[in-house]
Design a binder for these strands. Sequence first.
DNA 1: TTGACTAATGTAATAACATCACATATCGAG
DNA 2: CTCGATATGTGATGTTATTACATTAGTCAA
Lengths: 134, 134
Amino acid sequence: MTTAHELTKNQTLVFNTLSRAEGPLSAYTILDQLRGDGFRAPLQVYRALEKLLDYGMVHRLESINAFVACAHPHNHSHNHGMIAFAICEKCGQVSEFSDDIITQRVREWTTQNGFKQTKTTIEIRGVCAACGTA
Amino acid sequence: MTTAHELTKNQTLVFNTLSRAEGPLSAYTILDQLRGDGFRAPLQVYRALEKLLDYGMVHRLESINAFVACAHPHNHSHNHGMIAFAICEKCGQVSEFSDDIITQRVREWTTQNGFKQTKTTIEIRGVCAACGTA
DNA sequence: TTGACTAATGTAATAACATCACATATCGAG
DNA sequence: CTCGATATGTGATGTTATTACATTAGTCAA
C-alpha cells in the first residue's frame, strides 16, 4: 500500500517550492528560494529531493539537471509505466506522459538481453506548441 | 550526403580515447588521459566533444555525465531512429539500440501535441546480464 | 604576397552541480 | 529515560561545464 508519506519540514518546503514553480528548478534555485526559511546549504535541498524522488513525488530531469513536482497524483503501486518528459527549451515547460507501448518495448529489449533495469529516463527536448507558433 | 568528417587534431585525440575505452568516459577522465598529448584544460575536451556530437560520432549519456563513441558505423543520413542506451551500473558497459516502434510512438506524441523535438534521450539504468549472473 | 576572414586552439578564471565528513538535534520504541 | 534511527546543520571539497580573452593556423580573394 502506498501511504501518503509524512513529509518532514525540509521535504515539505522543497516540495512546495517545486509545486508552486511554473517549470523545473535546479537544486540551487530551490536553495535560493528557501534562504528565507533557514536553508543555508545545498545538502539540505539534495537530502529532501532524495526522499521526494524515492516517494515518487518529484522527478529528476537528467538532461537539464533540474527537478519537477510529479504531475500525476498517482498511485505508484500500480501502473509501473515509464514516464517520458517533453521539455521546451524556450519556455521551460515540461509535459509528462506515459506510454504503455514504449514501456513494453523497453521491457522486451531488457528481457531479451538479460538486463535488469532499475530506472529509465526518457526526455524529449524541443519546442512546445505554444512557443513554436509564437 | 554524410561525408566522413575531417577531424582536427584535438577531435581525433578525443575520439580515439573514447574508441579505445571499454565504457563511457567523463570529460575530465578524457582530459587526464590526454595530458601526455598536451591537453591542459577542460575546454579542449568539451570543444572536441561538441563537434563529435554534432557529427554523430559520439553520444552523451545525460544520466551519468559521460560520453561514448557511437557503436554503429551508421549512415546517419538515413535511419533517423532514436537511440536508446542500456547502462550497467556495475561494470559501466553501455549497449546501444534503436527501436522503430519506440521512435514512432514518441513521434506520435510530439505530433499530436505540436511539440517540435530536437533531441531525445532514452537511458535505461540497471545491471547487465553478465553482472547479474555473476 | 598581403590582408582579411574564419576556424581551431591555448589558458585562466569562474560558474554550476553534487557529495563528504562530522556535529547536533529530534523522535519513537522499549 | 535511554537507545537507536532518522533528520538536520554546516563547512569543505569534489566534479562537471562555461565564460572571456588571447593566440595560432588555414583559406581565399585581390
